[in-house]
Design a binder for these strands. Sequence first.
DNA 1: CGGGCTATTGACGCCTGTCAACTACGGTGG
DNA 2: CCACCGTAGTTGACAGGCGTCAATAGCCCG
Lengths: 225, 225
Amino acid sequence: MDKYQASKCLHCPIRSKIYCSCLDVENLKDFSDNAKHETFDKKVIILSSGNEINSIYNILDGIIKVYQLNEDGNQQIIGFLYPGDFFGSHEGGQYQFFAETVSQAKLCKIPIKKFRIHLSKNAGIRDKFYEATTNELSLAREHINILTKNSAEQKVLDFIRMISLRQHKMGQPINPVHLIMPRIDIANYLGLRLETVSRAFTKLKANNSISLNNFDSIIINNAIS
Amino acid sequence: MDKYQASKCLHCPIRSKIYCSCLDVENLKDFSDNAKHETFDKKVIILSSGNEINSIYNILDGIIKVYQLNEDGNQQIIGFLYPGDFFGSHEGGQYQFFAETVSQAKLCKIPIKKFRIHLSKNAGIRDKFYEATTNELSLAREHINILTKNSAEQKVLDFIRMISLRQHKMGQPINPVHLIMPRIDIANYLGLRLETVSRAFTKLKANNSISLNNFDSIIINNAIS
DNA sequence: CGGGCTATTGACGCCTGTCAACTACGGTGG
DNA sequence: CCACCGTAGTTGACAGGCGTCAATAGCCCG
């Protein structure tokens, strides 16, 4: 069992891209003992705002959307997470957001109590973790930048570029861009309606800014402008 | 000199609302020795994106706007800071944003090297600092929530409420709300044009949602809806 | 009193939201 | 294998809201 667990983290496909990268073999084994891999179907809510924080999740495979409910009870998507991202932390007793699978997903789940022990005794993890938070902050600000663009076409193009860079960071090519999430989620993220997003795609095709293979496979024709 | 410096932090009007609150007398004196108070006119750029990080600033009095330049070179305001807020940190070698005074402002400036020494040896400050970063993150998400509202009227009303809460956190009453920043900055923050913001104010007055004393002194008539 | 800056208001065209119809794709059951 | 249905995406028509350009009003400061 121990052997299997240790190898689980040792052979983790995303370890180099996450806070665990700073762990030595000893600590990694400790992590392995506590980490549990789970697979989820699409459209499954992993955690909900207001629930007691009990675990932190690393994404091994698949895409997760993170959203809040605004005062009217409407969903507001604040981000899409990819393999190598994690979610579920951020002090305080309760989760401040919802996390839901967009596609089928494989997650690595670590009890928050165990995780906090690592945080307290390992400065490396602490730093990585702080870094991850500031990274979230810059993603939020990038989101803000997109939201203040004044045409739907520009917002959608920026969105596609953002996803393109995101998948590039995971070692995949810039093109084609795979938009796994449905149009309605893109629209929500951009503060638009799905019809408007659909029209923006049509215009971008007409512009030759992009080409579509399928709904979800897009080629950005011009890196500029 | 030392005596004056120590009393500077001891009598600091915002100390209870900032990371310094966790300092004991000894460390406070150390802070005092390094902290420098400076007064700035309105519309003065305190720090610029891309510049080497050399100081961290606490706001003693006045309002600061924080902005980025997007790819077109346009200003995008990402926040307004009030007394008790600070800015200038966030690891990496360079500032990632611009900070500019909106009103006349009084700041407390601390060399980053000295500050990092405190960070490394004082867990209390470290925690407070991490907390401040997550707080920034939730402010950014609140901003995102406002930006996705689909009417200008709603955006402006949300903005006024946000500022109202902000000044309440500083111990001032909810009403009247003082909008120190010009309409053009509000418009920029909300992703609108200043004419649209102006019209939104007019509509909100007609609705009886708000009343205006002056341009910058506003009463929210109905806390609900 | 005059000049410059900021805010408001007006006119108009375009873009986005809304409602609705239609198409494309995938899965299920006969 | 095909018919059917449900879900997701596209397209159309129309009205209202926002951006744009322009003129006017209000305020501060010299």
